[in-house]
Design a protein around this nucleic acid. Structure first.
Lengths: 230, 230
DNA sequence: GTCTATATTTTGATAGAC
DNA sequence: GTCTATCAAAATATAGAC
């Protein structure tokens, strides 16, 4: 059967997600959302617990989707390396399905996570927990070195998310003929990110690495590379 | 001589940077800035070209500082690997000196770079240009594989910047006892990031890497590592 | 469920005294 | 250079008709 025409509630959710992503929570007016949904302000207060309630519901939907997706990956019958790669792809695929997600995530972080309640935080923690399970499995299998899950999380997810969020800025740089960065290939970029993280998690690699401290001039670089990995 | 007491103009700049970082451009009122600077609204319009003019001046100062710092690194007498590592440290050090910088950068990206003018974009392009020079030198020296400068830029800078920007969210996760991520070591994290990117730029490594496409199951992983690097 | 109308507050910006 | 006073516009939220 064809999808039923969206009811007013889901029309509001879709409109709000788009407008919050582009303008942010504070610069979005309830009227903007209503107009975009083809409804009026009062309908938003009828269906949701105010502007913030609507906002939180959107964020929770997204976090739940990411949690489900990454949970399935952690449970799958794959080698740890492949689970980790799939974890990254999971974010990228989810961002394809919900283009507003990267913007909403980044905005909420920049806002100091001010609006997140316990439920939403729990959903976010579950995503991190799924990654931690993958990493743990890799360590026990002897293919990953021990690493802080959140550090791995950020070094994977931040580039993927910021690739989307910088799209308008890259457009501007290209338009002004300052740097031709608008047309970069998304999948090649994601592959680049996976490559880097997998390399640095390699069980044979040194932990913080010989790269060492800030501004360390040239401290003899001993190429400690035992060849590692089975 | 001790620094002279800051004049009203620089008091406004400092106050505005802090308030913009925490609340964003749109949710910051000119009154907020004035109050924090210990002055009043009219002084802002006396010294600057409105709210947006003030904002752009702050962003340009920061981009100029980053451009100068990374330019000096690109020109320094270091091996390409060390220049690249210093480039990352440069961002981290600049973020130490100006804690508002990561928040302002991320917010402006999420806002679609809406408020950036040609001058500011040029300053941003210069930073990317400095990285491109480092990469190019590494390729010519045979120690880096060829890579898209912006891809390298994002995979280095996004994690470093988001490490700062997620600080409040990490506090909340820790406070709610959902994940103990508040106290992660900053320098260890930066080292982790450098490690990953350097590993993936290694001249001996395969380009997009066998990690390959989304959901690609297990395609035989050939550990192509010729040992490379002089 | 859907709408119009409106109360209340706050905003960016300026005029003009000192 | 620094201030007070104020305007015009826009915001969130609700009351109440249909």
């Amino acid at each position: 059967m064809p999808a039923p025409p969206p009811d007013s509630r889901s029309r509001i959710l879709a409109a709000a997600s788009a407008v919050f992503a582009v303008h942010g929570f504070d610069d979005t007016s309830v009227d903007d959302i209503a107009r975009r949904a083809g409804l009026n302000k009062a309908m938003i207060y009828y269906h949701f617990d105010g502007k913030r309630g609507l906002y939180l519901e959107i964020l929770q939907d997204m976090m739940r989707a990411l949690g489900t997706r990454t949970g399935a990956i952690a449970d799958a019958g794959l080698a740890p390396h492949d689970k980790l790669a799939a974890f990254v792809d999971g974010f990228s695929l989810e961002a394809d399905a919900r283009p507003d997600l990267p913007f909403l995530m980044v905005r909420e972080m920049a806002d100091g996570a001010r609006r997140l309640d316990g439920d939403t935080l729990r959903l976010m923690a579950a995503i991190l927990g799924n990654l931690a399970r993958i990493l743990d499995e890799g360590v026990r299998a002897g293919v990953f070195r021990k690493a802080e899950p959140f550090a791995v999380y950020l070094s994977l997810i931040a580039p993927v998310v910021m690739f989307r969020v910088t799209a308008p800025a890259r457009e501007a740089l290209t338009r002004e003929r300052l740097a031709p960065v608008a047309a970069l290939d998304r999948d090649a970029f994601v592959a680049h990110v996976k490559h880097g993280v997998l390399a640095s998690l390699n069980a044979g690699a040194r932990s913080p690495l010989p790269v060492a401290a800030p501004a360390a001039s040239t401290r003899a670089r001993r190429t400690t590379r035992t060849g590692a990995r089975s």
